[in-house]
Amino acid sequence: LELTLRVGDKTWHFKDVDEEFVRHLEELLKRGAHEREIEEIIREWLR
């Protein structure tokens, strides 16, 4: 999967994204996660 995600003024483009990561992001967005929380999840995933 490829994913382009825009949060606030930042845009990330990922290739070979894990479906579990996408589901986790979807859940965060559904519950109205704040920009900082989403950025933290992305940084963790990139490690």
Rank of each mutant, 00 (worst) to 15 (best):
R31D: 10
V17Y: 04
E44Q: 09
L28N: 04
W45S: 06
L46K: 04
E39R: 03
L25K: 00
T11F: 07
V7C: 10
D9M: 03
L3V: 14
R31L: 13
I42Y: 07
E26G: 11
E40N: 13
L46T: 06
L1M: 11
H13I: 10
F14D: 00
V7S: 02
E20H: 12
R23Q: 08
L28F: 05
E27N: 13
W45K: 11
H13S: 04
W12E: 00
E35N: 08
V22R: 03
E35T: 13
A33N: 07
T4I: 15
E37M: 09
R43N: 15
D9T: 05
F21R: 03
T11V: 14
E40A: 13
D18G: 05
E39L: 07
E44H: 10
L5I: 15
W45Y: 15
R47I: 12
E20W: 14
E27Y: 10
W45Q: 06
I41T: 11
G32V: 04
R47G: 13
D16H: 10
H13G: 02
K30C: 03
L3C: 03
V17R: 06
D9K: 05
E35Y: 10
E44S: 08
H34Q: 14
G8E: 01
V7T: 03
R47D: 11
H24C: 04
E27P: 02
E19C: 10
L29H: 04
V17T: 15
R47M: 11
R6F: 03
E26K: 14
T4K: 15
H34W: 06
E19K: 14
K10W: 06
L1N: 15
L1H: 12
E2K: 05
G8F: 02
R47K: 13
H13F: 11
E2L: 04
I38A: 02
L46C: 04
E40Q: 11
H24E: 10
E37V: 09
L5A: 01
L5F: 12
F21G: 02
W45M: 08
D16Q: 13
I38P: 01
G8P: 00
T11L: 12
V17K: 10
H34E: 12
D18C: 03
D16R: 08
T11Y: 08
R43A: 11
E2T: 06
G32E: 05
E20T: 12
R47C: 07
H34M: 10
E19P: 12
E40Y: 09
R23N: 09
W45R: 10
D9Y: 01
E27I: 08
F21L: 04
A33K: 08
A33I: 12
D18N: 09
D9C: 08
G32I: 04
W12H: 04
E19Y: 15
G32C: 05
V7I: 14
H34R: 11
E44P: 00
T11Q: 05
F21D: 03
R43W: 14
K10F: 10
E40G: 09
R6G: 03
L29G: 04
H34A: 14
K15S: 11
E39A: 06
E19V: 15
R47W: 07
W12K: 00
R23I: 07
R36Y: 12
E44L: 07
E39N: 12
W12G: 00
F21Q: 04
G8W: 01
L25F: 02
R36K: 13
A33W: 12
R23W: 07
K15P: 05
G8Q: 01
W45T: 06
E39K: 03
E27C: 05
G32M: 04
I38R: 02
E20I: 12
T4D: 07
R31V: 09
E19T: 10
L29W: 04
E2C: 05
E20C: 04
D16S: 14
D9V: 02
D9E: 09
H13E: 04
L28E: 06
E37R: 06
L25I: 10
L29V: 14
T11K: 03
V7Y: 05
K15F: 10
W12Q: 00
I41N: 06
E26C: 09
V17M: 04
